[in-house]
Write a protein that binds this DNA or RNA. Structure first.
Lengths: 343, 343
DNA sequence: CTGAAAGCGCTAACAT
DNA sequence: ATGTTAGCGCTTTCAG
């Protein structure tokens, strides 16, 4: 059986092609009786509109582009599945594009996506949400786009965000409430601007609690497990070592825990460790890691929603949408146990 | 500036539309001089062929479908990026479809992908590589497909595979060589057929080394960390507990390690633990997990290559391709330390 | 509310 | 080696 076309359906239903088109696209101005007839014909023939033809005639591709640069597989997949959950029912498909941040070829590839694949809209995830080269290109091409968790130029496009800084502040306060005053912090990759907000939250909590910001308690990592190990080693080598370490992501926190284990430092009795992201490793590691969970999938869904609304020409009055992250308390953090004081 | 079309290019180059088409598609029978003229016009206008028009006229979508059901984000992303690496240069794009194994709606969704999105070819990853409903649908629809690591009906399509069973055999032998004779095994999800090959490898190694297959040393997990914890608890509660445990994936191995830590069992001094997959958790956990790494990305690349060859009508003489997995030895396994014998 | 006609930008088949 | 002619299956535009 050859694939049915819109003409076949029209013939079977005894209407014109255009009426079938109206039914398929849920357009108004079709009498219920006519609609039913057409729908019957559609299912009888198992008719499915040919996307290529729709795209060509309608000058729309029904394709969304996702450009991602995040190193974490879970983050990416969560975003991806969130997007699909929203766009599939509206007959939009997704083209995924892994991008290496700072890749000089990126601009070319994005141009290709727009000109050749004709994507109707684009989504950017961190750290690309802050990549001005891409943002400017998208604006120049006049193609709708949304960003997930941008930290800069927020007026450039609709976006969704989460309260990274606040969550980080809360986590730090929680450590302070447990009695910790020497709290180390491991910063994330400097290219990933959202990471610096996490550091801001840490600093704000110290200030709020009249704790000094000590330079030798802050190390610069790059989001990798290995950098967590290196920073952890430096922090823990200090005679006046911290009693708690808060890393800007879970991988680095896992690195700290690895080093602590190797040095025979007990967690959480002698050292509390906290991370950020709630990746799977967080609950699989021993002891299970206290961390912060971002609403990744919800952000992706909301962002897709904003993007599709743009495509449909609706003005977006509220370009931003804030979704909350939450602290997940596990076993890697605990109350400060004072070392025996000298008498 | 409006987007240039093939007519614009033809006009500028002073040739016919068809000649431009020939150049764009790298077809033969174009004089070098003509080709150059056309290429000059193409770059002058920054012309990019409209995919929708190509698809409609050529009755091809230049779209590949990836249907995945694997629970691990890294596995999926690795596959996805491997596919893109090969298909992008050939101007094919990828449509991703997360599928819940055994979802009754799956057949409908796949039908949609084929009929509506008109994908030219499909790739199936485990455990969908063995899903006969999908395989039969694909055959009925007469659409080319490849499978990654199928375990059954290997003649149904071209495929790529890895030596799971052999790797599992090797790992078990390695544990035996370290002196272990009571080696526990945690099986994977029964729906995931490749998992049972890992069990076969374990059994084969026991037989080869004249070791008994003890029922109370084998537990049934479901690939999750939590099931690893449960099975680990059962195995370790035994008075005659195993001195080594081999889990069919890393998540379950991590579960065993968690339980061991909680019970105060030292790894690897009192218990060796091995996993399978080399997920990130394997090297982030303490002590780092001995495991097996599959050539996921290479399998995806090879599979994409096979699929594209099919699409181009070349007969595939060698439908299968075997890529080797390898053992990654880390700190979670070590020699058997005999408990002090009673005198 | 419904329909007829005219393309969208390409490729395929067949000239030349 | 190059050009001509017809569509592909829809949406759009404009008429009724």
């Amino acid at each position: 059986m050859a694939k049915a076309t819109i003409d076949d359906v029209a013939a079977l239903a005894g209407v014109s092609m255009k009426t079938v088109s109206r039914v398929v696209n849920n357009e108004p101005n079709v009498r219920p009786a006519t609609r039913e007839k057409v729908e019957a014909a559609i299912s009888a023939l198992d008719y499915r509109p040919n996307q290529s033809a729709r795209s060509l005639a309608g000058n729309r591709s029904y394709l969304l582009g996702l450009i991602y640069g995040h190193p974490s597989a879970h983050y990416v997949l969560d975003i991806q599945e969130g997007v699909l959950e929203i766009c599939r029912p509206q007959r939009y498909e997704l083209l995924v594009h892994p991008a290496i941040h700072r890749d000089p070829n990126l601009i070319n590839e994005v141009t290709d996506m727009i000109l050749e694949k004709r994507v109707d809209g684009v989504m950017l995830t961190p750290p690309l949400s802050d990549n001005m080269n891409v943002i400017n290109l998208l604006k120049k091409m006049n193609i709708p786009f949304v960003r997930v968790a941008p930290t800069e130029n927020k007026s450039a496009s609709p976006y969704v965000e989460t309260n990274d800084e606040e969550a980080s502040y809360d986590m730090t306060c929680q450590l302070i409430a447990l009695g910790h005053t020497r709290i180390g912090f491991i910063c994330g990759h400097p290219d990933h601007r959202a990471m610096s907000l996490r550091y801001e939250g840490y600093k704000a909590a110290l200030v709020e609690n009249d704790l000094p910001l000590l330079k030798n308690l802050v190390e610069q990592g790059d989001n990798s497990f290995e950098s967590g190990e290196m920073c952890g080693k430096k922090l823990l080598a200090d005679a006046q070592r911290p009693t708690a370490i808060f890393a800007a992501n879970d991988d680095m926190a896992a690195g700290v825990m690895m080093v602590a284990h190797q040095m025979g430092i007990k967690i959480p009795a002698q050292l509390s460790v906290a991370g950020f992201d709630d990746t799977p490793v967080a609950h699989q590691i021993w002891p299970a890691l206290t961390t912060i969970r971002q609403p990744i999938r919800q952000m992706a869904k909301k962002a897709t929603d904003l993007l599709l609304k743009q495509l449909k020409g609706r003005e977006i009055q509220l370009p931003a949408s804030m979704l909350s992250s939450s602290i997940i308390s596990r076993e890697s953090t605990g109350p400060l146990i004072k070392p025996k004081d000298k008498h």
